[in-house]
Design a protein around this nucleic acid. Structure first.
Length: 212
DNA sequence: TCCTGATCATAA
DNA sequence: TTATGATCAGGA
């Protein structure tokens, strides 16, 4: 799988899609997950929507990340949905965020909107495990965000909270609501939220690798 | 220009 | 509805 990932570097998404017999959309407005699904197929990730890593036997999570011509991330990176109920007893060690990020195979893909999806090129992959400092930052943000959620303050959390990890809506649209806990401990309906890695964090992580 | 909040497709 | 895969888009 790692060897395959390395062989994809330099290919355009159009070339890869053609090999796999996949149609190439003119833009990603209605196919936001197309790049990720294409790479999953190419690398043989166990497709599906199970809340697990992409390669359970390897303990590896696959993430494509859109970058500009200089390798700088163009978008934040979605990690997983945030639990909003029954979170008593949850710890960082057992969190979904830590599990997903313990080993990530990053595949940078040129993602400038001025370039058609089929013409975007795949970059050199990077197998990453958080350094002690990176994990400290992730844990710090996760614990603070989860504390606010447990205190019934989920609706007060904005994307500005957190140094490297942020909480943002993760929904089909504004009418897709889910249950959470309010200020007085009462059940409330709110937008589903997800954890995202900020571009400053992923940018530094990629830069550290490609400098070596 | 950048970033936050909103949104799109699909499977089970 | 919730999980997967993310990017869009316009106000700051």
């Amino acid at each position: 799988m790692m060897a395959t990932a390395g062989q994809l570097a330099g290919l355009s998404l159009g070339e890869l899609a053609h090999r796999l017999g996949i149609p190439v959309p003119a833009h990603l407005r209605r196919d936001k997950g197309w790049v990720g699904l294409l790479l999953e197929l190419a690398l043989g990730a166990s497709a599906g929507s199970k809340p697990e890593q992409d390669f359970p036997e390897l303990g590896v999570e696959l993430k494509t990340i859109p970058v500009d011509s200089q390798g700088k991330p163009l978008e934040t990176t979605f990690v997983c949905v945030a639990p909003l109920t029954d979170i008593a007893g949850l710890s960082w060690e057992h969190s979904n965020v830590r599990n997903k990020l313990s080993r990530v195979l990053w595949i940078p893909v040129l993602g400038e909107r001025s370039v058609a999806p089929g013409a975007r090129r795949i970059g050199q992959p990077l197998l990453w495990t958080p350094s002690r400092e990176e994990e400290r930052l992730l844990r710090q943000d996760w614990e603070e965000i989860m504390e606010w959620i447990s205190l019934g303050r989920v609706q007060e959390i904005t994307a500005r909270h957190g140094q490297v990890l942020q909480l943002r809506p993760k929904a089909a649209n504004g009418r897709a609501l889910t249950e959470a806990v309010g200020r007085q401990g009462q059940p409330i309906q709110t937008l589903p939220r997800g954890f995202y890695l900020k571009t400053t964090f992923t940018g530094a992580l990629l830069a550290r690798h490609f400098m070596l």
